[in-house]
């Protein structure tokens, strides 16, 4: 009746798409440790908001007067659009950004990690299976982003992240399709 927690966790990780976000993280003249700290702060804040949406997922779905399968269809379709974007549209750049550690807010939290497709997915997943399959992959995303923030993504590293971002887009399309079909064919 509900999609597996593994499918949702994969969808969350792929939709967050750290490889696509990584080139847009604020670097400038910051030392690697500072970059990682800004990234953890910003992505952590976004994660907290998204987990909050997942915790409130059932209440939000009830408040909207829709069933969980219908919300799952909405999340699936949002992911399909996201997957196409990830495959065909260039990722955002690092600028403009707030200076210093405030860069955790802009651009790391907004608009790089706290994105509406993740919000819709978090609400749907929260209504379906609770917040854990949202929280755990997002924590992993924070870790991956922190690691990537310390790296200079030039040359081969840039190519690897570009292809990883495209692979993420494919996974978003696949999981979006699965969620849409599952939502349509649910009672």
């Amino acid at each position: 009746m509900t999609p597996s927690a593994w499918l949702i966790a994969l969808a969350v990780f792929a939709t967050a798409n750290p490889a696509r976000v990584a080139p847009a993280l604020p670097r400038g003249a910051r030392p690697a440790g500072e970059r990682a700290l800004v990234t953890v702060l910003g992505a952590g804040l976004a994660t907290a908001v998204l987990v909050g949406l997942a915790l409130a997922g059932e209440a939000i779905v009830d408040g909207l007067g829709v069933s969980a399968p219908t919300m799952r269809v909405a999340a699936g379709l949002a992911l399909l659009a996201t997957g196409l974007r990830d495959l065909w549209v260039a990722p955002p750049g690092p600028d403009p950004a707030l200076t210093g550690r405030a860069a955790a807010l802009v651009p790391v939290a907004v608009p790089l990690v706290l994105r509406p497709e993740l919000g819709v997915l978090a609400v749907s997943a929260g209504a379906d299976v609770g917040p854990a399959p949202v929280a755990l992959p997002l924590v992993a995303v924070v870790g991956v982003l922190a690691g990537l923030a310390t790296m200079d993504l030039d040359g081969p590293a840039a190519r690897v992240t570009r292809w990883a971002a495209r692979l993420g887009g494919v996974l978003v399309l696949a999981t979006g399709t699965a969620l849409t079909v599952d939502g349509v064919l649910s009672v």
């Binding site: 909207l64 007067g65 269809v73 909405a74 949002a78 403009p96 907004v110 919000g119």
Partner: peptide, 26 residues
């Protein structure tokens, strides 16, 4: 402007989801 654009995208996605997919089930 970047924050405003992000807010507009959030609102647009919410509106499309609400109107086109997750309309209220009466």
């Amino acid at each position: 402007g970047r924050v405003l654009a992000a807010a507009v995208v959030w609102l647009a996605v919410a509106a499309v989801v609400r109107v086109a997919v997750a309309a209220p089930e009466h």
